[in-house]
Write a protein that binds this DNA or RNA. Structure first.
Lengths: 129, 129
DNA sequence: CAGAATCCGGCATGATACTG
DNA sequence: CAGTATCATGCCGGATTCTG
């Protein structure tokens, strides 16, 4: 593993950070984990309702992906009508604090970021570089 | 702001977590922040070289976006040939620990995740649900 | 109800050429 | 060197339909 002088991983192509980023770079995964963290155990339709604007397809894809990674478990109840419930695994739960660390930062600095964006926009209009 | 019984933000459409996710859901932003965190101050071409497989266009877009949010600063040296250097702002630096919290988790559990994926794949082949 | 399968458009991203 | 401008494209994700 290549490291730089400060002991951090490099951003090179084969950097393991990439694997993590590729995994959570999608639109919904983190959101689903967060949701399951707060609600505990939910069925398919409930997850969809809570998120609100996710399509059925993307919800399926996201859940399969999370299940494949072992972050959530999927239990099928052989009933009519069918019922499927999802919840975080131990691995999934171990991820939650780190996600909330990031989202916590976001919530805290969101206003500053939005103001920076606005200021940047104005500078672009006034000045022609 | 709507909250659920556990005190966490809901995953609803207007949830502020979305804003953070939308911001860092792209392929390169976090990587650039991490890189600048380790290297301190870099010029355009250096960032591109360290990352390796980013196109010039996407590097420009990513840097502009980060600058717009106030996470990195951009200094232009009026020389020939031109030189432009980037580094993290205080706001950008404040984000680093949270990113490393997440990537640290990823590095730690990457093997388990990859094994889960493999096991899941095998199950899909053997069993026909 | 919980999905699987299919089609399809748009945007993110890439490649290329040009400029100060 | 550090971009900008333009064109090309892949695949992400939405809408729809069908099934057990």
């Amino acid at each position: 593993m290549k490291e730089n002088s400060s002991g951090k991983f490099s951003a090179a192509v084969n950097c393991p950070i990439r694997q993590v980023l590729d995994r959570f770079g999608d639109k919904w995964s983190i959101l689903v984990v967060e949701l399951l963290s707060g609600k505990g155990r939910l069925r398919f339709s409930e997850i969809g309702q809570h998120i609100g604007d996710i399509s059925q397809k993307m919800l399926t894809v996201t859940l399969r992906s999370l299940e494949s990674d072992g972050l959530i478990s999927r239990e099928i109840f052989p009933e009519i009508p069918p019922r499927v419930e999802y919840e975080l695994t131990a691995l999934g739960k171990s991820l939650v604090p780190h996600i909330e660390s990031l989202t916590g930062w976001g919530v805290e600095h969101l206003d500053a970021i939005l103001q920076n964006r606005k200021a940047y926009e104005l500078r672009q209009k006034k000045t022609t570089y």
